[in-house]
Amino acid sequence: MNQRTRREAYEQRQRKRSLIIAFLSTSVVVGAIVVLVPRLPRWDRVRKSFFDGEVFADSFPRLLRAFWLDVQIFTWSVPLIFALSLAVAVSRNTRSPALFPLRAAAVIYTDVFRGVPVILTIFLIGFGVPGLFDSRSWSNPLIWGSAALVLSYSAYVSEEIRAGIEGVHESQRAAARSLGMSSSQTMSTVILPQALRRIVPPMMNSLVSLQKDVALVSLIGPIEILRQAGLDKSNAANFTPYVAAAVIFLAVTIPCTRVADYLLNRERRRTGATAVS
């Protein structure tokens, strides 16, 4: 079986051809940027204020330390988002008339928090809710900033979970109910395990997006990376800290995106047909 089939030989020729074409077109584009951008009339000034090596080196460790706060906010928000969105999604799928208020609340919640920009939610909750308490310990912007993120993102993620639940075929429910399982047993043992498997990829996308939006919490106070970059920018009178912050974000989001794509492709391969070019 060492002999290559006609198809394999053809595919190898095609791969070689694609590789050469991709290499040439990439060289042309990158070459054009490298040659043309520095020829723009004010390139020198932009280079000095955005790509200053010294400012970068000075600011980078401080930004990295500030980024730790972003990581923390992200880390405690994710399980909360998962729990809340699961609860909302399951509430929306209940059928008992007694639970109508719960269903209605879930619908209103998703409509409202999906419709309001994340940053507005952060402002309204971050500045509004602490006013309800006398004690200063409840005015920590980290708590309310995180709460706003959780509320915003759970609205999206709950819709993803709901789509996953509805994607499980009705016949699965029929099979479970015909065994005598109650509707909640059916949900927890038959429907949810299948639904959650399907929604891992879209959920990964939401997490990548959350990872960036954590920076918005800085707008109500905490000194995380975006805020620190702003301070450094003012001190150095130079925009390079923003570029440095962007580099740090990319170092995290790009690997996350790749993992999400990998999961998405694997799921597609598992459930779908041959890819059509």
Binding site: A175, A176, R177, L179, G180, V190
Partner: peptide, 18 residues
Amino acid sequence: PDPIRRRIGMVFQSFNLF
């Protein structure tokens, strides 16, 4: 319906296994 369904078995055209 649950206590009744557990006394009645049903098999479907398209199996509906989990």
